[in-house]
């Protein structure tokens, strides 16, 4: 979220500055990542304190969901990148018969 760090204060929408104004803060990225890391750590920690119940044995292994979530997400990104290598085409591949080359929608 580097880009959000820009010191742009051109938000014209007052609601916007209340809701998301803090995103324009210099350290917002760091705050977000920090919060996320801390919560992850806490959640992982809970597993060693509290014994979760599940239908399958594996569910009860401490940290299973954490590991599974992390790995699978990475796998998805990896898989998608690979897939793109094979299926990517120009936008006008299907010519006028596909909507992708319509740049703008008529404002109605």
């Amino acid at each position: 979220m580097n880009d959000n760090n820009k010191k742009l204060k051109e938000t014209t929408n007052p609601v916007g500055s209340i809701l998301f104004g803090w995103l324009d803060h210099r350290h917002s990225t760091r705050i977000i990542i920090g919060t996320l890391s801390v919560s992850c750590f806490v959640l992982l920690l809970v597993d060693f304190v509290y014994h979760r119940h599940g239908h399958f044995m594996i569910e009860e292994v401490p940290g299973f969901f954490a590991l599974y979530g992390f790995l699978m997400f990475s796998l998805i990104i990896l898989g998608a990148t690979t897939l793109r290598y094979f299926v990517k085409r120009r936008e006008d591949y299907y010519g006028t018969k596909a909507v992708d080359s319509d740049m703008t929608e008529n404002k109605k």
Partner: peptide, 18 residues
């Protein structure tokens, strides 16, 4: 907790990958 773990670690993965 399991759901939060799954989602938060996936988010973490996203952050790392980004």
């Amino acid at each position: 907790i399991s759901q939060l773990q799954l989602l938060c670690f996936a988010l973490l993965a996203f952050t790392v990958i980004m």
